[in-house]
Amino acid sequence: MPRITVKHQRNINGFAEVQVSNATMKNLICHVAIDGHKILFRLKAIEASKWYTATDIRFNHTHFSVWCDYLKLHPQYQKP
């Protein structure tokens, strides 16, 4: 598994947020999931994703699921 850092916070409206940082020199494919909704994105080397926000104030950091893997292992997600 690649080295990533996951940050959690609450925004000014009280919604839980998550951000994923890539600590490797390789591009990654990642997803952030909450309550069955999955957002898939590519994460460049040594960069951080945007903040992904929950849709309900009752969600907290334990409701988020984060997964990342090396993009080269998943060619179906590479740009044509």
Score class of each variant (00 low, 15 high):
Val66Ala: 12
Ser49Val: 00
Arg58Gln: 08
Leu73Met: 05
Lys38Tyr: 11
Phe64Val: 06
Met1Cys: 11
His8Ala: 03
Phe41Gln: 04
Ala23Leu: 15
Tyr70Leu: 04
Gly14Phe: 06
Ala54Gly: 11
Phe59Cys: 02
His37Ser: 10
Ala54Pro: 08
Pro75Ser: 03
Cys30Ile: 04
Phe64His: 02
Trp51Glu: 09
Asp69Pro: 04
Lys26Leu: 07
Ile29Thr: 09
Asn11Tyr: 09
Ala16Thr: 02
Leu43Ser: 02
Glu47Met: 14
Asp56His: 12
Arg10His: 05
Gln76Glu: 13
Ala54Cys: 04
Trp51Met: 00
Ile57Leu: 11
Lys26Cys: 08
Ser21Asn: 02
Lys79Val: 07
Lys79Asp: 12
Trp67Met: 11
Lys79His: 07
Ser49Thr: 01
Arg42Leu: 13
Phe15Pro: 12
Lys50Ala: 05
Arg42Asp: 08
Gln19Ala: 00
Lys50Pro: 12
Trp51Ala: 07
Ile4Tyr: 01
Arg58Val: 13
Ile34Lys: 15
Asn22Leu: 04
Lys79Trp: 09
Arg58Glu: 13
Ile39Pro: 11
Thr53Pro: 00
Phe41Pro: 05
Ile34Arg: 06
Cys68Leu: 07
Val18Glu: 00
Ile39Trp: 08
His37Tyr: 11
His31Lys: 10
Ile39Ala: 10
Lys38Cys: 11
His31Gln: 13
Ala48Tyr: 03
Asn27Gln: 11
Tyr77Asn: 07
Gln19Asn: 01
Tyr77His: 14
Ala45Gln: 09
Ser65Val: 14
Met1Asn: 10
